[in-house]
Computed example of a mutant assay.
Amino acid sequence: MTAERHRPAPRGAAFLTHVQAVLEGMPRAQQRLGRFAVEHPIAAAQMTITELADSLGTSPATVTRFYRALGLSSYSQLRLELATAAEDRGRAGRDELSGDIHADDSLGTIIEKMTAAYAQMIIESGRFLDAGDLERVARAILAARQVRIFGMGGAGSVARYLQGKLRSLGVPAIAFRDPREAVIDMANAEAGDVFLVISQSGAAEDAEHVLAEAVAREALTVALTSDPGSSIGGRADIVLRSVVREETLRTGVLSTRHVEMWLADCLSAAVLVCRFDESRTALTRVNEALGRVRRSAR
């Protein structure tokens, strides 16, 4: 082993460059580890040493030799360096394609910027979305007598979208845009019902009033918001967090809706898998009914 490999490893995105630079002199099994780490740093950082070894058909001892060859003293240090490098590399990509739209941007550049911005918001939202919370909400929805969804303005469109997804799975769901109508219906809620409120800021006053009524009726309350510390996020039983980044000349309202609809899709998918056979039957019936409608309209 050369002295070069024992030098302290560089930090940040340069760590991945360092890994690539020393790969050639490594044994084949360690080369596989290195290529995987460079290509999938986030995935590698999330694995235990045994999981990483098993995924590449090698042993934990080989992984140990690999990180020591990189100048690291422990596997936890390798995971930290990979996570830091992935974040730095992602930040560099965002810096290159982020920012507002400029007058001299080509349409190709605009497409790249918009694609990167929307993809990054969903990726970051995915990092904050807790699978345990998602399952808890899904199972509560399946056990509820009634599911109510509230959203004002553009969030109301997401509420209707989620209503349609849940109804297609056989879930009794109803969406509201008008706070008065929502409060009237909530007055008949029972303990065990589910109330979902969609508010990007988490500070919509009318939404707070409807949420307060849901709390009073002992419904399970769920907030879809980008601010868990907001008045709505702080009062809800469970928060499903979205990450939204707005630029001056981008349509921030639309970017918010896209991330919220992604959250709605995640939730409906969780409901589907929690009661798979019944949900699949319900979807089949819906598709058959829609097919009959389409045929009769010809």
Rank of each mutant, 00 (worst) to 15 (best):
A83R: 12
T50G: 14
R275I: 01
I149S: 02
V158F: 02
S255A: 15
A282I: 07
H209N: 13
E112W: 06
G25K: 09
D185Y: 08
A144M: 05
L220Q: 03
L283E: 12
R5P: 10
V244S: 02
R7Y: 12
A212S: 15
R160F: 09
P228G: 05
I49Y: 13
S157Q: 08
E39N: 14
P41C: 04
A189M: 04
L97N: 07
I110P: 01
T17P: 00
S201H: 13
D193F: 08
P60G: 09
L23H: 03
P41S: 07
D88I: 01
T50I: 09
K165M: 11
F66K: 06
T58Q: 04
Q200H: 09
D227S: 12
R285P: 01
D178W: 04
S255V: 08
T256P: 02
S199T: 13
L97M: 13
G132W: 01
A173Q: 06
I232H: 03
Y75E: 05
M26I: 00
V215K: 10
A297W: 05
L33H: 06
F128A: 11
R79W: 00
R139Q: 10
E205A: 14
P60L: 07
M121C: 14
L272G: 06
I198Q: 06
E51S: 07
A37R: 01
R5E: 08
L263Q: 13
A45D: 04
V183Q: 06
R160I: 03
R7C: 10
G170Q: 04
M47D: 06
D206H: 13
